[in-house]
Structures are given as structure tokens and as C-alpha cells.
Simulated assay, not measured.
Amino acid sequence: MGYLQLPGLGKVHFHEYGTGNKPLLAFHGYGMTGKQFHVLEQSILPQYHIYGFDHFFHGDSKLDGWTEKQILAGMSKNMVRSYMQEWFNIYGEQRISVMAYSIGANLALILVEEYAHLIDDIILMAPDGLSVYKSLHFILHNPLGRALFSWATKSKWLAPFILKTVKKTGLIDESLYQIAYNEIDTEQKRLDTYYTLNLIRLLKPDAAAVAALINQHKIKCLLIFGRHDHLFPKSAAMPFIGMLDDAEVHEVTLGHWLVIKALDEYLAK
């Protein structure tokens, strides 16, 4: 494990694991840490040496003196470049691979925008960032949605009520509901959710540009979706998939909660 000190941003903690030699930078999903991919011990870990980064408001990563106003304004896409710049300062500029799950895919895709000429593989699981997801866009960019999100953060009853309503509409299943509920059942958890999603709200990759770069540099692309995922389904990513020349795409019999032993066993086969 180690830390990257990112100028103007903060201290990012990362975990190291895997028995392979190829460096792979990994970005986890909400509520997890950079250790999330440790479960992929048969399929991914033997091939790569993983550097799994903790998102801010997760694990041991800490913003450096940011005010609430700055957090709600969001970090810029340009700041994601500093992950690579500082990692190269420690390990030297070299070819890498990237991997991400859910909201972590936004960072991985932005690194492809900036460093495609140095990337061998990209592995995305239930990825955000390939399309506009209306519910997230509403609470992060619409003035009414942002006000509602702020209110829900401070209220003991509103966030659980909204979550139950969303489950009834079928946008999330029972397993995702339980996961989400466990992240909003205290005021501090609700605040961390609010800060996390607002901090990354501007980190939206240019999907068409990313696809063109993957094709141009012949980056090996593995995309994995849950057949029962109502949050980031394969159907929403089809325009992006259609722009790729040679992607390996899997839809497994799981929901959004993908990074589990069952996925490892599936990939190992």
C-alpha cells in the first residue's frame, strides 16, 4: 500500500495486490475501497499487479483543505490526470492497464482519454460513464434535484423514503436496495454519499472519444454487465459498444453487485 499526494486535491491511498507483473490501476465502486477487486483471485490477480485506489470519502484517502463549497462544485476532469502523473513519478512512465467498477469507471475512462497511448487493457464492470443516467443526472445537475439531494442528506426519513420509492419502481432490486440503505442509515454516511457524488459529478468521459482511442491504439477491452442490473445495464452502454471495433462483452446472471466470487469463477472459466 502507499499514497499519492495530488497537488491541489489531496492524499490518495492505494492498495497493492495480485501476483502478476503487469501494472493495473483500479477504481472501486461506491461504499467500497481499493481492495474491492481482491476477490478476483483466479481470474484477474494472477495476471496483474493491482494498484487499487480509495476514492475520497472512502478508505484512507483525504482531501486537502477543501471547503464544502469546493466539494459541491466538483473536481475537474483535469485533476484525474494527476493520478497518473504522480504514479509515474513513483514508478516511472510505463505501459499500464486500467480496471473499474460502477462509478469508478468515470476515472478509468478519463485516464483513457489522456493516456490511451500507454494503456494495454481496460476492464470495466457495470460501468458508469458510458451514458447519461437520468436519476443521477437529476440529483447532481438539475437545480431541483440538487436541492432535494441536499435535503435528503440532512433528513433522517427522506433518504430512506426515496430509496424505498425507487425500489418500488423497479430501478433497483432488493440486493441493491439493501446495499444502498446500509450507506444512508446514519447522518455521516448520508453526508459521505452527498460529498462523494458531488465531488465526481463533473467527471463525465467523452464516450465517443474514448471509443475512438480504444480502436486507434488497439486497447484490449473487456466489458462486463449484470443481466439484472437496473442501475448501469448493458442496454444503456450499447451505443458505446457499437463504436468499438473489437470488444469482449459479457452479460452475467447477476445484478449490479458484480465484483463477487461468482464473477471470479465465471471469468476464470
Rank of each mutant, 00 (worst) to 15 (best):
G2P: 00
H13P: 00
L24Y: 02
L25N: 00
Y30E: 02
G31Y: 13
G31V: 06
G31M: 11
M32T: 07
K35A: 10
Q42H: 14
S43W: 05
D54W: 12
G59E: 02
G59N: 05
K62M: 10
D64M: 12
G65N: 08
W66K: 14
A73N: 15
S76I: 05
M84P: 03
Q85C: 12
E86R: 14
Q94H: 14
R95H: 15
M99L: 09
A100H: 10
Y101S: 05
I103H: 09
I110G: 05
E113C: 09
D121V: 01
L130M: 08
S131Y: 14
Y133I: 08
F138T: 13
F138N: 14
N142G: 12
S150L: 14
T153F: 03
K154A: 12
S155G: 03
F161N: 02
F161A: 03
L176I: 03
D185A: 02
L197W: 13
N198F: 11
L199N: 02
L199Y: 06
L203Q: 03
K204T: 12
D206T: 07
D206Y: 06
L213M: 11
I214D: 03
N215S: 08
Q216H: 10
H217K: 11
K220A: 06
L222Q: 07
H230W: 06
H230K: 15
P233M: 08
P233V: 06
E248W: 05
E251A: 12
L254R: 03
H256D: 01
L258F: 03
V259S: 04
E265Y: 09
Y266P: 07
K269C: 01
